[in-house]
Design a protein around this nucleic acid. Structure first.
Lengths: 165, 165
DNA sequence: AGCCACTTGATGCATCTGCATCAATCTTGA
DNA sequence: TCAAGATTGATGCAGATGCATCAAGTGGCT
């Protein structure tokens, strides 16, 4: 039997879209105003900095961040241009390469992390009790295709603000 | 006193970003595969079609859709190019104009509406009970800056799938 | 070894976005 | 009535994104 389209679901959909866009906007604007680059850069620096040697294959980065391949490639371009990372040769697989975070990159990652945490607190934390936030997580997780997800658990660890999108 | 950055909030933030992006992607891909234009077009057609004479000032459309002015202007360009709407003169205010939905526009709106409803049911409705969806709405609303929002209540009315973003 | 299919990463191109700015018009207030 | 300021909508430009495709390299199979 078919479910009839639920009004509740539609309402949830709308809010999910609207609220996410507002919150994201708020956070990104805060960071931008503080002179920081886009969030995607932070996510990338985060993945790099927490990987064993501060280096990852683009293909790994891509999987962690859930963004398309060409997008990763260009993101790396920008990080490299800004001296936040470098491309290094990959001996085991001459097709590939390693992207390694530089000290400058680590520094920026740290500074952004602080600003990011503040922004999240302002736009999310301050509006929900911990219990509500947890409930929200539970509900959202159910929409998350069950499936997937950052193989290396991306559950934000304490001070580690964590990757978005 | 300062709140210390909550881990729950950070977790909620991540999920909000990740899940939204996945769900949106799912829905948009479904529509695209079915040969439909982007969701923004639907939202615009929706606003037009439910306004008194099927026409709106760009500035109104912009407020309803919560997108920047230049974005509205270009969205209208595309709708007009495709014959889904026309620009009409506005006698009361010669700076402005009216955008009016065409029959073709209404037709597309209707067809997209059906596909859209199916997609939402698939990506949201089928994963949540009505009660959970309602709970989710409640929690998300709390993040929604309280403030704002579609002046003309955008609460999706029954069959009316409603605007996103 | 030699061939074929797949993976990896980059890139050309069209489109889309954000930002700043513009011209035209309206409104206010002296 | 007229100038100053605000509002409306369009647009040039730089940068970002999506898509398709490419070259280089790998690995498996015969």
């Amino acid at each position: 039997m078919k479910r009839k389209p639920s009004t509740e679901a539609a309402a949830a959909w709308i809010r999910l879209m609207r609220v996410q866009s507002r919150v994201l906007d708020g956070v990104e604007q805060d960071l931008k105003r503080a002179g920081f680059p886009p969030l995607a850069w932070y996510d990338a620096l985060m993945e790099l900095s927490r990987s064993p040697n501060g280096e990852l294959r683009p293909v790994e980065l891509e999987k962690q961040m859930l963004i398309p391949q060409y997008s990763t490639s260009r993101l790396i371009d920008r990080l490299v241009d800004e001296g936040l990372a470098i491309r290094r040769e990959c001996k085991m697989d001459k097709r590939g390469l390693f992207v390694e975070i530089t000290p400058t990159g680590r520094e920026l990652h740290k500074k952004m992390g602080n600003a990011y945490a503040v922004a999240i607190e302002k736009h999310v934390g301050s509006k929900l009790t911990d219990a509500d936030a947890a409930k929200l997580c539970g509900l959202l997780d159910r929409l998350g295709c069950a499936c997937h997800d950052t193989p290396a658990v991306s559950a934000p660890v304490a001070k580690d603000v964590a990757p978005a999108r």
